Every structure is written in structure tokens, then in C-alpha cells.
Amino acid sequence: MTLTGVYVPLITPFDATGAADFAALEALANETLAAGASGLVALGTTAEPTSLNAAEQRGVVDVIARACRERSAHLLVGASTVEAVNVLCCRPGVTAALSVVPPFLRPGEAGVVAHFAALATVSPVPLVVYHVPYRTGQNLSADAIRRLADLDGVVGIKYAVGGIDTATLELLADLPAEFAVLGGDDAFISPLLALGAHGGVLASAHVATARFVELVDAWRGGTAARARTLGHHLAAISSAMFAEPNPTVIKAVLHAQGRIPTAAVRLPLLAAGPDAAESALQQVDTQGHAIVGARR
């Protein structure tokens, strides 16, 4: 199994009382899957999982799992510890756990590989490594990622290094077999796909979902001219969506579109400022019209 396409790490909507709104979450799940997403991520960073209590976390996974099951879509669940992955044994239908490289400790490449070897041994589902060095403090070379790919039970990587660096070029020039590279920096997804990535875990794909799906299909199908055009427009949307801490702007846009009841986030996040929200809405509108116009 090689994961391909667009995976949307869903937000957790909150209602006017501050409670998790599972009906709004279910609607978002079905909308993004209907627009062509290959799968969804539950309890990713975009979902504000550390601000959710245990019952809310279970509810989030229940809702998203049901939507994926009904549409035969892949389901990834954020789970980075032995305790968290063990919970997934009771959840049929989970495709993989999305497991972050151990943050803050900076254990070195050998420590990272040993960590994932141990986690894969006990996990009831395959693992997708989440590599985001500007959050974890731990860089990984292309060689270290290939060692991770060689581990039984590790099937891919969410690759979010903040750009296209030498390790990126080395990795994508010689991809491990049956190992998925999914871009995790939304603004850089187009060049990453051009270099051979299999898809992306893209928070920006809450909006313009079908266009992100088209972008992946265009690069993987060899339609470079269309892919470049889409990539430029979608990068502008993504940059606006990440102008303030994720998922604050995304929530502001979804609320303005009438798709979630409030734009509320939980501490330590603060709601997006009005200027950032308005700018993102303008980009969604402007770039959406430009994409349609470019097709004609």
C-alpha cells in the first residue's frame, strides 16, 4: 500500500458554548471526501488535539472514521506514543497512525530510527512518520529517512521541512519502494509533487479541496503546464491560510463561508485577526476565479 493523493487534517469545530461540534465536523468530513480527498486525518495538529479532553478525542475519531468508512477513504489518526497507538487496536478501518518525530529532546537520527522501530513493533496499524524539524528541533537526512522506510510497519512520511533543501532532493531522487512521501508544507506542495512526492497532508485543502486534488493528479499524470498554474494559485491561498498560527485562519475562513458555527479556537491559540481572515478570504475568491479562468 502506497498512500497517494490529498489527505485533509480536519479541524475541530466548536459551537457557541465552546463545545466540540460533531455535526459540523461530520459535514466537513463528507464535504472534503466528496470533493475527491483520498482520506482524512483525525487528531492531527490542525485539530488542536492537546486542547481536547479524552471524550472529545474519541468523538472526533468516531465521526471521521464513520465518514471514511462510508466513502471507502483512508483514515490516518494522530498517535505518537505507545499508549496512543495501542488505542487504535480497537478501531477497525484505521489506515495508519500519524506519528511525530520525538519533539524537543533532539535524540539524533539513530535515536529517531530506534524510536520508530520500537513504536512500529507494538503498533496495531502502520505508521506514517511526521517529520517537521522546525517544530521538533530534529533534522533528518535522506539516509535516515531511508532507514525509517526500511522498518517493518513504517509506510510513509509527512514531510514538512519548510522548503526544498538538499535532503529533499536526495530523498526524492531515489525514493524507497512502497514508501509514501506526503508533503506537509502547503505552500510548497507543488514543487514537492514535481520532484516525485505522492501527495500531501494539507490543511489548506479544507477549502478548494478539488483543486488540490487536481494539482496532485496533474503532477502525477504528467500535465505539467496545468500543474504549474494550479500550484501558483494554490500557494497563494496556502500562504494566506498560514499567516497566523494554524488553524486560526482556516477556522475564520470556514466560519465566514458558513461551514462551521464559530471561528473559535482554544488556548494557547487566539482567534485570527480580522485582517488575516479577510486577506485569506480574498485569496480564496481571487485565486479560485483565476484557476477557473485559466482552464478556459
Rank of each mutant, 00 (worst) to 15 (best):
V181E: 02
P247C: 03
A177T: 15
V60N: 00
L127G: 00
Q138F: 05
E83G: 12
V122E: 11
A194Y: 07
G44K: 05
A35T: 03
H206W: 09
H255T: 07
A218R: 03
L40N: 03
G137V: 10
C68F: 02
A24M: 04
L140P: 01
V101K: 02
L269W: 06
A34E: 12
V113K: 04
L127H: 00
E26V: 00
L88I: 03
D62W: 03
T4V: 13
P245Q: 09
H115P: 06
Q282E: 14
A144F: 04
F188Y: 15
A187D: 14
L254V: 05
P133S: 09
F104Q: 08
A225P: 11
L182P: 01
A35F: 02
G222P: 08
A280S: 09
L75S: 01
G293S: 12
T46A: 06
V292P: 06
V8T: 06
A73W: 01
R58K: 08
A23E: 15
I189S: 11
P124R: 06
V125A: 00
T4K: 11
E83S: 13
R259L: 13
A235H: 13
A218M: 10
P245I: 10
A84E: 15
A177H: 12
G108A: 12
S123I: 07
A110F: 05
V128R: 00
L3C: 01
L270Y: 04
T121S: 13
T50W: 07
T4P: 04
G200M: 02
